[in-house]
Simulated scan of single mutants.
Amino acid sequence: MNSAMKRIFFRASVWLVIALLLGACTDKSLKVNDLRCCNTINPEGVASPSLSWKIETTKDGVAQVAWEIELASSKELLEKGNADVWKSGKQLSSEQFNIKPEGVNFSEATGYHWRARIWNNSGTMSPWSEPAYFSVGLLSEQSWTAQWITSQAPKNSPLPYFRKVFNLNKEGVRPVKATVYFCGLGAGELYLNGQKVDSTRFLDPAQTNYEQYALYSTFDVTDRLKDGDNCLGVMLGNGWFSQDAAWQGAPFGYGDPMLRLQLVALYSDGSRSVLGSNESWMWKEGPVIKTNIYLGEQYDARREVKDWSVAETRCADWKKASLAQTGIPPRLIPQVMEPIRTK
């Protein structure tokens, strides 16, 4: 064997040994799973990402001694090992909760993909976890172009429907992600193209001190969009915000039902389009005659409007929304806790 062949054989042997050693240091029975951000699985619209995970193993006496996290702008980049947002490197720590990526300037209305792996007290490294996801919401008043809108209905009138027809088509590009940031006070139900966006949510958003702030919920509506015209719909209830029937004399009412909604669409070329609630939205009295968080609801099904949140439905007798003037919460923050849900 000549010297050139010996060098080639030696290098191949070295790489083989390295590969075997690396494989020996990875324990496939040691897994990182249940990845969460802000204690929620794949949440939309968080304010300050806080990451956590759980360890799964078939062995006794296993403890984490180090961790590593990678963050990327897309799942594809992450799976290729191109963490273009953040690489923590190996961190000597047993912490599995409340891990905050240091030095990362997260962009608003943007999604991120992440994964984690750990080392145990035997020096064994786990494989990378399956990718997880979170998105950052709208974090300041300046981020909202949408306005607070309300109806012109007299007090104690049936509660309103609201609707807005829109079209996200752009020549040569298509929307790859569409996110709705929505606050309906006292409680709001969001519809798109005739269907409730999340039929399990109830009395959403959660109650707050509305003189200080209100919460908004975030919805990924990408799969609900269609080519051409779409229609957003909102049904409002009094919730805790407009409660003034029970406990009369107590200052529990903050204002008339109102909403604020902003849709952000991201296109395949990286551009964005923003749609916000304003005076171009339309409203009409609906079938909810009365509603009170303590005293229940009166519903008249004869007043239902068929396909009221479908773009093709005519709305000649609907009225234009008005800008809310009083009772507006001074700021909106993301609702990251689980909502009340119905089964």
Results as ranks from 00 to 15, higher is better:
132 A>Q: 02
150 T>M: 12
78 L>T: 02
90 K>Y: 08
193 N>I: 06
258 M>C: 13
55 I>K: 00
74 S>V: 09
306 K>A: 12
158 P>C: 02
304 E>N: 09
266 L>A: 14
199 S>A: 15
213 Y>Q: 05
213 Y>T: 05
145 T>Y: 07
165 V>T: 10
26 T>N: 07
83 A>T: 06
42 N>R: 10
246 A>D: 12
155 K>G: 05
208 T>H: 01
185 L>D: 01
268 S>P: 14
88 S>H: 05
37 C>W: 01
33 N>S: 13
145 T>L: 09
129 S>L: 11
230 N>P: 13
278 N>E: 06
118 I>C: 01
51 L>Y: 00
338 E>L: 14
2 N>L: 03
163 R>I: 04
51 L>N: 01
62 V>S: 02
324 A>Y: 07
107 S>E: 14
298 Q>V: 11
216 Y>D: 01
222 T>W: 14
44 E>Y: 02
54 K>V: 09
260 R>N: 08
339 P>R: 12
250 A>K: 15
24 A>E: 01
98 N>S: 08
117 R>C: 07
186 G>Y: 08
229 D>Q: 06
73 S>Y: 09
187 A>E: 13
290 K>E: 12
145 T>A: 10
339 P>G: 12
307 D>K: 08
125 M>P: 00
145 T>I: 14
96 Q>V: 12
146 A>M: 09
161 Y>D: 13
325 Q>Y: 00
163 R>P: 03
8 I>E: 11
266 L>C: 13
106 F>R: 08
343 K>I: 09
249 G>V: 14
109 A>E: 14
331 R>I: 11
88 S>M: 06
264 V>G: 14
227 D>Y: 04
226 K>Q: 15
